[in-house]
Simulated scan of single mutants.
Amino acid sequence: MYSPNGTYTDSAPITITNTFFRKVYLWMTAGLAVTALASFMMLSSAAAQQMIFGNRVVFYGLIFAELGLVIAMSAAINRISAATATLMFLGYSALNGITFAAIFLIYTNSSIASAFLVTAGTFGAMSLYGYATKRDLTGLGSFMFMGLVGIIIASVVNIFLQSEMIYWVTSYIGVLVFVGLTAYDTQKIKLIGQAGFANEQERHKAAILGALRLYLDFINLFLMLLRIMGNRR
């Protein structure tokens, strides 16, 4: 289309990308809302807390179920329907909310609120950077992924070592990793939106998968900041 000054501009791809991004963020927000609701329901039931947190088999079973849902959804996204992808994402968000309720039993409400506000501001700033920057963040994403693998390995080892130094080192590095991944994932989602989709089903599934990636970045950044900022009860 022509702009008022007579130059040719093509705003259609930008409009399509922005519409796709709004859908991604709406679903990410929906996932966070489901997580918050599931946590609230857990906290309002002493029987549910006893069943989940009083039994390690049940608790770790839910953790593995969450991990399985994420892996299954990411691996099968091209074969499943958009409705199935949506249900899997919301199911994961609900399961995460159930296990997430534990933080309200460990940390004070004020420190949780503070960590959430810092997370929201940091996430928003880095996501905006990832969307607006012209720099290719592929190298950053690869580096952050290696850092994530290192954090996972160190955290597993620390289950046995119980080292306070490892705990704090992984917490601070974790903040940097998920800050970087937020920018990288945002740029990647933007490029996916610019490439376009064959149909509305594919567009919806891509939005759900994008929402999952940003949801994971947000949640993990929040947990790392809470480990640093949080005051225990």
Rank of each mutant, 00 (worst) to 15 (best):
M1R: 14
M1G: 14
S3N: 13
P4D: 06
G6A: 02
T7L: 09
T7F: 11
Y8Q: 12
Y8N: 06
T9G: 02
S11R: 15
I14R: 14
T15D: 12
T19R: 09
V24D: 01
Y25H: 15
L26C: 05
M28S: 09
T29E: 08
T29H: 01
A30G: 15
A30D: 09
A33I: 13
V34E: 02
L37K: 03
A38M: 07
A38F: 07
F40I: 12
F40M: 12
M42G: 01
M42W: 02
M42P: 01
S44H: 12
S45G: 05
S45K: 09
Q49E: 03
I52G: 03
I52Y: 00
G54W: 04
V57L: 14
V57A: 12
V58Y: 07
F59D: 00
F59C: 10
L62Y: 02
F64I: 15
E66G: 01
G68F: 06
M73F: 08
M73C: 11
S74L: 13
I77N: 15
A83D: 11
A83S: 14
T84K: 14
T84S: 13
T86Q: 13
L87S: 11
M88T: 07
F89H: 03
L90I: 13
N96F: 12
I98P: 00
A102I: 14
F104V: 02
L105V: 00
L105S: 02
S114T: 15
A115I: 07
A115N: 08
F116L: 06
F116G: 00
L117C: 09
G121S: 08
A125W: 12
S127A: 15
A132R: 15
K134T: 07
L137I: 06
G139I: 03
L140T: 13
G141E: 13
G141Q: 04
G147I: 02
G150D: 06
G150W: 05
I152E: 00
I153Y: 01
I153P: 11
I153Q: 07
A154G: 10
A154T: 15
V157P: 04
N158P: 04
S163F: 09
M165K: 05
I166G: 05
Y167N: 10
V169M: 11
S171F: 07
S171V: 06
Y172Q: 10
Y172M: 12
Y172T: 03
I173K: 08
V175C: 05
V175E: 04
L176E: 01
V177Q: 04
F178Y: 15
F178E: 01
G180K: 07
T182E: 08
T182Q: 05
Y184E: 07
T186A: 04
T186I: 03
K188A: 13
L191Y: 15
I192D: 15
I192H: 12
A195G: 11
A195Q: 15
F197K: 01
A198D: 11
N199T: 09
Q201L: 12
Q201R: 12
A206N: 08
A206L: 04
L209G: 06
G210K: 01
A211G: 06
L216S: 08
D217A: 09
I219W: 13
N220G: 08
L225V: 11
L225Y: 09
I228S: 10
I228N: 12
M229Y: 05
G230L: 05
N231P: 00
N231M: 09
R232E: 07
R232G: 04
R233P: 04
